[in-house]
Design a protein around this nucleic acid. Structure first.
Lengths: 248, 248
DNA sequence: CCATTGCCTTGATCAGGATCAAATGAAAGG
DNA sequence: CCTTTCATTTGATCCTGATCAAGGCAATGG
């Protein structure tokens, strides 16, 4: 009962990450070949909405490049980002037609898509795939629950530090134990988007970012460049216990 | 490609809800019969911890009666309940050995369990099951994300109203459009547990509960009895849009 | 019966983050 | 170059919910 849980870095995935993340790369049945044939790409500009909450979404997809976000809005305008989709992340709800959240392109975005119908047929014909998707969904659920702790109990400073930690890790190639040296990456979110993700206001985000800068935890370069001189120092600010790693 | 998404009320499930929620009741293969044979029950007293975060959990289970909760704790004691498990809910992570959260019995609790190994074997042999579990997990993910909006953006009063709405609906038999008349149910949580679920303090919960009472939205009876004279009135307090229903 | 314990309420005060408002800076376009 | 726009910073003030501290009330047990 192999689990095929290998999680390749995006650059290893060729032009279609879904084959590696959602569908095991080691099990090339005819169905997968068929799937390969029917994939297609869609590009979106920053700010564009991909699906509105409540609409039907007739495809599943995998983020190739850029960032998408799942957003929920209350009628008085309060917004909460409930999921960030980074390259290699999967979007879609096999077995579900309507989307409960807005899906929007936060940056310019390319996705690799499959129409839902044939994808579901393939799923039914290829048991591995449903299992793999189940595991991915369980991981997302874990991440969502971790975020609930952040939203419910962490201070503004801890929230910011947690977000930066996550982005730094993703950007630095998923290595938990990153290089001892300085890490740097480009922040892909505006202050407002960070605020909507963290349950804060943009002013508070700005202030806390500068507080972390004053305290030497991060350096804020030109053009949203973030430099983290000491990753462990940043990690301490998150309020999480030392390891913080995910388990299998 | 039937989806078997039927979601029976607990009382319809006989003695083992898992057959209906996790495993389609309409597809009785030999594997399911085998599963039926190997089910066993476990009881826990209120307050008892079922699994600690990080421990391996060697079974999957379904809540038969009582309430369990998934909890995350920071080392300084801040706690967040990240999931409430009501009767007929599924607990467990097929394909995952370690639990990332504490699972505790909030009230006296009975669960219907299956050892993980044979359950996973059955899953592999019965494709329906993986698909059904995937759908359940997607639903949980939706619920978690809805909760993220609550934690990040709602006021204390809206949080309380949202929780009461959910509990009332569950307790009144999952009917979205409940009877026009008064609804009443027993609150299964202490003020502290409500606080930990909502990201508040118990004092704030107490104050807002009494505020809702003063405003005639709910009545607080003896022994945690809640009476909701007008459900729509309560629903208005949640901040959600009118329908608020889940979609398929 | 009284003491204890657990749960809930209520009050007083505090503080973290929200809100309102303005200024700065950088990029884009005419 | 000047204007516009958008993102960000910074300041002043306010307010919601946290914190600290008692007190009430039932249930339980000696």
């Amino acid at each position: 009962m192999p689990h095929h849980a290998l999680k390749l870095a995006p650059q290893d995935c060729g032009d279609c990450p879904i084959r590696h993340r959602a569908v095991c790369s080691r099990c090339d049945g005819p169905e997968l070949a068929r799937l390969e044939e029917m994939k297609y790409y869609r590009s979106f500009e920053a700010g564009q909405t991909i699906v509105w909450s409540g609409d039907r979404m007739d495809f599943v997809a995998s983020v190739v490049s850029g960032i998408a976000s799942l957003t929920q809005t209350m009628e008085d305008g309060r917004r909460q980002i409930v999921g960030l989709l980074l390259p290699s992340d999967f979007v879609g709800r096999p077995g579900r037609v309507a989307t409960p959240f807005d899906v929007t392109a936060t940056t310019d975005l390319v996705m690799c898509c499959f129409r839902r119908k044939p994808f579901e047929e393939m799923m039914a014909a290829t048991p591995h795939v449903a299992q793999r998707l189940l595991e991915m969904t369980l991981d997302e659920l874990d991440a969502a629950r971790e975020w609930m702790l952040l939203l419910g109990r962490k201070t503004a400073r801890e929230k910011i530090a947690s977000l930066l930690t996550i982005l730094a890790r993703r950007d630095t190639g998923l290595k938990a134990k990153a290089a001892k040296g300085a890490i740097s990456f480009d922040l892909p979110l505006t202050r407002e988007e960070m605020a909507d993700y963290l349950g804060l206001t943009l002013e508070t985000v700005s202030r806390q970012m500068n507080a972390l800068k004053r305290d030497g935890v991060v350096e804020l370069g030109e053009k949203r460049r973030i430099v983290v001189p000491n990753f462990d120092r940043l990690a301490e600010e998150t309020g999480d216990d030392a390891d913080g790693g995910f388990l299998s």
